[in-house]
Design a binder for these strands. Sequence first.
DNA 1: ACTATCTACCGCGCTATCCGAGGTAGCAGG
DNA 2: CCTGCTACCTCGGATAGCGCGGTAGATAGT
Lengths: 110, 110
Amino acid sequence: MGSGKIRGQLLKGTTPLLVLTILRNGELYGYEIAQRIRERSGGAFAPSEGSLYPALHSLEAGGALQATWRDSDKGPRRRYYKITPKGGALLAEHEQEWTSFATAMARSVA
Amino acid sequence: MGSGKIRGQLLKGTTPLLVLTILRNGELYGYEIAQRIRERSGGAFAPSEGSLYPALHSLEAGGALQATWRDSDKGPRRRYYKITPKGGALLAEHEQEWTSFATAMARSVA
DNA sequence: ACTATCTACCGCGCTATCCGAGGTAGCAGG
DNA sequence: CCTGCTACCTCGGATAGCGCGGTAGATAGT
């Protein structure tokens, strides 16, 4: 409650970076992407479905991700996402953007 | 232009932290706050008036800042802002929030 | 006197994105 | 049969930054 308000705003714009980073190591499906982000951040980031799925669709529509449906033997079908060359370039851009942003913040808040 | 889109989102939620940090060293008026933020960030952050003034009003309304009008001998009147004890607490909260956020990002993007 | 420029404040409408809540399914265990 | 986990999706509300326009005082140039 109390602290969540600030965080919610800081999170804005980070989802594509987190998603593309996770997908750098291989193909994954949506639900799994959420889990990996949660694990990797030590529980700090847990993008809700209401923000993750739209982000995936947006990245796919922009040509950064390529997706395919595949059946699972133990549950609903899954949509697997793979990073494209264009997505690689976008990831690089996001990484640079984040780095310079974090650097400027460190300088400003010091 | 090219990179501005991502940045605009990353900036969300950082204005109160930047403002409170700048005001930690003393009383300043709005226009000056903008300049200081610009200088201190090396030009990386230049909050527009459309976001700075509402942020100041919001902080004042929340009791984090105390403001007074004062005339200037060389231009329009100025509204000076001073940080309150409550603002100090809010600053601490924002700092902590930012630190844990930046740490989690570093871990996630590494 | 007129005009431009800098200072200094404010509000409005647009947009992006996050979240919570709700909905649709498949499959497994009690 | 019903609960719960997996797995996808969408919609409405809220937040906050930005561009743009507006008001106004003071100064300097032509």
